[in-house]
Computed example of a mutant assay.
Amino acid sequence: MRFAILFVLPFTVAACDLPEPSETLISDQSRVSPAYRAGFDDGCHSGRQAAGSIFDDFRKDQTRFNSDRDYAQGWSDAFRQCETQEEAVQRRVRSAATIDAINQSRGNQFDRVLSGIDYSGLENL
């Protein structure tokens, strides 16, 4: 469990000061409209939240989504991409916590097996 906490802590601190998703996930070279970027930002936050992120919230301007093709496309593209990325992060955190719990329980089983056994005579071997 300690490993999982140490693994998650840097993400927790960093999440407070992250740039908008379009600034990091859309290349500076790509020529996308401001509407696509806005949709991408909203969709990415929504996708992360849907996958379990506690740092993101659902964002979707439904009126704009229905009337602005670029906003809708950016939102949809980002939702799928960011949801998948967040699910991968969540799986890694769960895996790290599971591995840590298994390692801790193995140590405890070994200690239980040796409890009550006098092995002080083995120290001179």
Rank of each mutant, 00 (worst) to 15 (best):
F11Q: 09
S30V: 06
D17M: 14
C16M: 11
C16N: 07
F40L: 13
D41Q: 01
Q29L: 15
S30G: 02
Y36V: 04
L9E: 05
D42W: 10
Q29F: 10
D41R: 00
R37I: 00
E23T: 12
E23K: 09
Q29V: 07
R31S: 14
S33K: 06
V13R: 12
T24I: 05
F40S: 13
G39I: 06
D41A: 03
S27Y: 04
D41K: 01
V13A: 15
I26T: 07
S33D: 00
C16K: 00
R31F: 14
A35W: 09
P19H: 03
P19I: 03
Y36C: 09
S30M: 13
I26S: 00
S22H: 09
D17F: 15
V32A: 01
P19W: 04
R31C: 14
P19R: 09
P19Q: 02
F40A: 08
A14V: 15
P21E: 01
A14F: 03
I26P: 08
A14H: 07
L25Y: 10
P19F: 03
F11C: 10
A15C: 15
P21N: 06
P19K: 08
L18K: 13
C16G: 13
A38M: 10
L18P: 07
S22V: 04
P19V: 11
G39D: 03
S27K: 12
A35K: 07
Y36I: 04
I26D: 01
Q29K: 13
